[in-house]
Simulated assay, not measured.
Amino acid sequence: MSFYIGRESSKLWKRICAEITTEINLLFENWKYLLAGLVFQYIHGLAARGVHYFHRPGPTLQDVGFYLLPELGKEKSYISETLFSFIFLSFVLWTFHPFILKSKKIYTVLVWCRVLAFLCASQALRIITFYSTQLPGPNYHCREGSKLAMLPPPESVLEVLLLNFPRGVMYGCGDLIFSSHMIFSLVFVLTYQKYGTQRIIKQFAWLLAVIQSFLIVASRKHYTVDVVVAWYTVNLVVFFIDKKLPELPDRSNGGASLLLPVTNKEKDSRIKEENHKLLNGNSGDPADWRQRTQTNGKILEDGNTVHVNTTMNGA
């Protein structure tokens, strides 16, 4: 039993080391894209912080979702954040599954390059929309009478640049159309829809995205229009940008051989396979895999028969 555990642990460690080597090589090639995506996340937070200075509380706008969905209240508003945290952490863990599991279909660095591209494009559109028109926030801390509804003018540039994290992010106002929570949730679900392997998890992920939409409205964090616009905007952004980006190599179809380091044992097996093909009269090219027959020392292709002059009984 201990021998089996030790052997499996050794295999797991070798697999993790191979994945780390591969991902580091990909990171050196794509670090600029990842850095740009992370920097834009800060810019998006800076823009959301800035629009809070322009926010003016007012009467809550008429909303169909507010009439149809019961209000959760301050005590139960954590339900929406809990579900979002579950979606976020589940996706992050899934992107790192090639380091442990054998069923490898994605490369972590390449997947995050695509995810950040989707997020940046969607967030850029979001910044344009919520700076175009500032709506009175429906959230509890954004309503009239709340001290957090309006921010006093900043005393220094540093106060704005630091975003007052995390309090400034949790209690922001004015950045409504469209929902940032739905941007992340839909980008994650769409990414797993394309690169995930478990059908039941895909269906469950879409169900969670729908439930997340209702919870956002029920907790009065956004108007219904913020959620509706996010649904069709993010889907369209992902659809068009995904066509412009180069497709990921599919590791399940041998695409991993282009990026994964090759061991000496794998090299020897490939050389033996090529020699075996050559000895059988096959060059290794699929176009040259034709049926061959042999007659009197002559190799005939495609099963065609040739006439061979033979001499029998001295004739």
Rank of each mutant, 00 (worst) to 15 (best):
R270N: 02
S90K: 14
S146G: 09
N25G: 12
C120S: 09
P261N: 11
F204L: 15
L259P: 08
P249A: 08
E159S: 07
A287R: 14
H44F: 12
V228I: 15
G168I: 08
V237I: 14
M312Y: 13
T108Y: 01
P249G: 02
F130C: 04
K32D: 03
N309F: 08
Q62R: 02
R270V: 07
K11W: 08
P166Q: 06
E81C: 05
G314K: 11
I211H: 07
V237Y: 04
T133K: 12
Q203V: 14
I183A: 05
F28A: 04
L27G: 06
L83Q: 04
V109M: 12
T191P: 08
K102M: 13
S77E: 15
A48C: 13
V111A: 03
I216Y: 02
G254W: 11
G45S: 11
I100A: 14
V187I: 04
W289A: 08
N253K: 15
R7I: 12
V238S: 04
L245N: 09
F40Q: 00
L258S: 10
W94P: 08
E23C: 06
T129E: 05
W31Y: 01
V51I: 15
L148Y: 11
L119M: 11
E8I: 15
L34A: 02
R49F: 10
N296W: 09
P59K: 08
Y78A: 10
H97M: 14
K277G: 01
K272N: 11
A218I: 08
Y171I: 00
E8H: 15
G6D: 15
E159N: 03
G174Q: 07
P152H: 04
Y232D: 07
G137W: 02
V229K: 02
Y33E: 05
A124R: 01
T263F: 10
A117H: 00
V262T: 15
L89Q: 06
V225C: 07
P152E: 07
K202W: 02
G281W: 12
V115S: 01
A18L: 13
N264E: 15
Y131D: 04
V187L: 07
S77V: 13
F130W: 11
